[in-house]
Nucleic acid binder design. Structure first.
Lengths: 211, 211
DNA sequence: TAGATTGTTAATCGATTAACAATC
DNA sequence: TAGATTGTTAATCGATTAACAATC
C-alpha cells in the first residue's frame, strides 16, 4: 500500500545507527555489547535501545548484553539487508550520481545495476561503473532483471511521470528523493526522503538556541 | 545545546513540504490555499495541516484558507529561511559534491562559499563553482566569513576530528551526513541526516507488504 | 444567507520512560 | 555470591485526531 501501517516506525529508524555501533564493536572483536553501552554511544536511554532491539527478535544475556555477531545478523535480517536486491537509479544528476557511488548501500543489499536519464548526452556514459540508459530502456531493463526497487532522483517536476514509467515496468518500491509526493497504486511502497526537513530542524534549533 | 528540546519536531519536519505546495499554488497565481487542499495533496489530515501551520503564526480566513504569499513568508520566516547564511562544506566527495550543486538550498538561505577536503588532489579545484581548500584553511575561512553552518560529508571515520576542527574555528551548527554520532559542546547544534534510516523504513514496508 | 474552513479545547492514540522481577 | 543487565508490565508523556463554536 502507498501508506502502510508499519509497526514502530521510530524504532526502525534507529536500528541502522545501532547496527553501525555494533559493527564497530564486532570489528574490535568484542563478543558482547550491552544496551547500556549502545545507549551511551548514541545518547539515548538504555530502555529505549532494549525495546528497539527486541523487535528484531534478538535475545540478550543478563549481565553480558547482546552477542555482537548475532545482533548484527538479527538487525540485518529484520531489515532484509541480508539479501542482495537489484535496484535502478532514475535520474543521473548530482544527487543520483552521489548515491550511485555510495558504497555503504552495498551493505544494505542494494545493487544498483542501471541508471536512467532523460538527457541524451548522459546516455551511453557511466557513473561509478553503472551504465546510463535512456528512459525508454526502463521497461526492458526492469523486466529483464526483475528489479523491484528504484531510487528516484529526477527533478521534482518530472517525479510523477518518472514514477508512472517505472511502476508500469514493474517497480514496487520507490525511494523518493524528490520534493513531490507521489501518487502510486496500492501495491507500491514509497519512502520519501526530504533533505529540507532535516535542515528545517537544524534551522529551528539554531534560532531556539540564539533566542 | 547538543540535544535541545525544540517544540513539535514532527510539525517542523512537515513545514517544508507545505512550503513546496504553497509555492506551486502561488506560481499559478492562487491567492488563497486551504489546509484541506494542502492535506489532500500530501495525504495528511486537514486538522494536522492547520495545527502545523499555526506554529508559524499564520492566520487563515474561514471559507477561503491561507493567503499564499503570506503563508510562504510565514513559513520561511519561522524556519529562518528568509535570510542568507554563509555555510561551509566539509568533505568534497560524492555526496558533498552533490549537495554543493543542490540549487534548492539557496531557497533555504544556505550559501556554500567554500569546500574543504583532505585529499591534496582536490585542493585548488572547484565543485559547482565552489573553491576547494585544504582542511588547514578552515580556521581562516570560517573566521573571515563569520560562517556558523557546516555541512559535514567526510567519511564517517573522520567525522569527529573534522567536527572538532570546524567547531574550533567557530562553527556552531552542523548538518551531519556521516554515520557517526558527534560529540560536541553545548553551544553547538547538530542535525544528523541518516539515509540508512530511510532505506530501513522502505525495506520493512516491502517486507510487510509481501508478508 | 448557507456552508466551507479556521482555530480552540478535549479525547485518543502511540511512543517513551519508569519500575522491577528474572537471570547469568 | 553480588550486581549488572535483560525483558516485561505499568505509567507518563507528547503527538495526532476528534468535536465544535466562530467566522467570512
Amino acid at each position: 500500500m502507498a501508506k502502510q501501517k508499519i509497526p514502530a516506525m521510530p524504532s526502525i529508524r534507529r536500528l541502522p545507527s545501532y547496527l553501525y555501533i555494533v559493527q564497530q564493536a564486532h570489528q574490535i572483536n568484542q563478543e558482547y555489547i550491552s544496551g547500556t553501552v549502545i545507549a551511551q554511544e548514541l545518547k539515548l536511554e538504555p530502555i529505549q535501545v532494549r525495546k528497539d532491539l527486541a523487535i528484531t527478535g534478538i535475545v540478550g544475556r543478563p549481565k553480558k548484553g547482546y552477542p555482537t555477531t548475532e545482533l548484527m545478523n538479527a538487525i540485518n535480517r529484520f531489515l532484509g539487508w541480508d539479501t542482495i536486491q537489484p535496484a535502478i537509479l532514475v535520474g543521473a544528476g548530482n544527487l543520483g550520481t552521489a548515491l550511485a557511488g555510495y558504497e555503504e548501500f552495498r551493505l544494505h543489499g542494494i545493487n544498483i545495476f542501471a541508471a536512467f536519464d532523460a538527457e541524451k548526452k548522459k546516455v551511453g556514459t557511466s557513473i561509478h561503473r553503472i551504465p546510463v540508459y535512456p528512459l525508454s530502456a526502463i521497461d526492458k531493463q526492469v523486466k529483464k532483471s526483475g528489479a523491484k526497487i528504484a531510487i528516484l532522483t529526477v527533478p521534482s517536476e518530472h517525479a510523477q511521470e518518472a514514477a508512472n514509467l517505472i511502476i508500469e515496468a514493474g517497480i514496487t518500491a520507490i525511494w523518493n528523493f524528490t520534493n513531490h509526493k507521489l501518487n502510486v497504486p496500492d501495491h507500491v511502497v514509497v519512502q520519501k526522503e526530504d533533505l529540507s526537513s532535516g535542515f528545517a530542524i537544524l534551522s529551528v534549533m539554531m534560532r531556539n538556541r540564539d533566542q
